[in-house]
Amino acid sequence: MNVARALPIRRFDRGGASERAFCQRIARLAVRSLYAELVLYPKPGLVSKIDNGSHADMTAATFMRSLFALRRYFGAIAQAGMDDAPFHVLKQLGIDAEARMLRATYGINTHRGAIFCLGMLCAAIGRCQARNEPLTAQRIGDLLRACWGQALGAHSIDAGAGSHGVDAARRYAASGAREEGAHGFPSVFDVGLLALRRALTAGRGMREARIDALFALMAHISDTNVYHRGGVEGALTVRRQARAFVARGGTGAPDWEARALACHHTFVAARLSPGGAADLLGAVCLVHAVTSG
């Protein structure tokens, strides 16, 4: 399943067929981006079509059911972004999408972080399009912060209990998805997307570029999923291994695949799963699909 090429900038009548078509295409790109993350391999500790990584409670089929349940959400939140909806509207769309995900997966959290991250990006993309602005990474990030940054900041502080990510963030002072969102997802634009584009510029393929982006994210972010499973020592293991992979040249090194597989086996043995980095990789894939020429 290949991610579609960059979206053209179109002028259209508000509320018309062109607007609906645009939102539907954004939804397809979001789902395809999460599918691209799912099928990527080797992907340390994470579920793929090859194996279940560090997870005993979910498989690739679980993720596919989740993706099917989320396909309309991404179009709806892109439309809400076009309409300049306030944050509480976007938040409710995400809450409803999470409920559909949990019904589809029988209570397993496959995409909670992705619902938040890719959802907000879809809203910002919709806002760009409504304002007839260029669909560039810079403008998407700028509008995300300008339109909803203050509310996202408050959201990151007002984090109720009820998720492993929130609990880990409190226990270990890890930043997690909420703080990323409060700052406009800088790791997506300044870390993951940069690594992906650098690999493509060097002549490597999309698979290698996504691997590089994932390891760059693992080396950089404070992943509450990792803290929940492995505590401080687990988080240090993930960061050390990812940084070593990047320092050796990432997928530019001749033995990159063997090194990535060894990292995968290490993470599985320790039950480590960098799910936060995986969610951000899906976001990187989405921004790249929308903005690449």
Rank of each mutant, 00 (worst) to 15 (best):
N2M: 10
G45M: 05
L121P: 07
A69N: 01
R248H: 11
G16N: 13
W256G: 02
H288P: 01
W148M: 02
R103V: 12
V3E: 03
A169I: 08
R131Y: 12
A154D: 06
C117D: 10
R239N: 04
L214I: 13
M82K: 03
E179S: 06
V39F: 00
I9E: 04
A235E: 05
A60W: 03
A61K: 05
V31W: 09
A242F: 06
M206T: 15
L70C: 06
L281T: 06
H264A: 09
V166N: 06
R178Q: 10
A6H: 12
L34C: 11
F245G: 07
A235R: 02
Q129E: 15
V287F: 03
I140R: 02
R103K: 14
D190W: 08
G205E: 01
Y41N: 10
I50Q: 09
H88C: 14
L40S: 09
P254N: 00
L121E: 00
L38I: 12
P44T: 04
V191L: 04
T201D: 12
A27V: 04
A168C: 07
E19S: 13
S156N: 01
R139S: 11
S292E: 12
T251L: 10
T62R: 00
A124H: 02
M101C: 11
A123K: 05
L34M: 15
A283W: 05
V232K: 07
G53D: 07
V3C: 10
L143I: 13
S175R: 12
A168E: 00
S48Q: 08
M218K: 03
A277D: 09
P274I: 09
D57C: 08
G94W: 00
D84W: 09
A17M: 13
A202P: 07
S273G: 09
H88N: 14
L46E: 06
G181S: 01
A78D: 01
S156V: 02
C263A: 14
R131E: 15
H111C: 12
G107W: 07
F189V: 07
L280H: 04
A78K: 01
R72L: 14
V188G: 00
Y106C: 14
I140M: 08
S156M: 06
A270H: 10
R171S: 10
E98N: 03
P134A: 08
D51W: 02
H220W: 12
L34T: 08
A247T: 03
R239G: 11
V287I: 11
D255K: 01
T105Q: 05
A174T: 05
R10I: 15
R271F: 11
A85D: 08
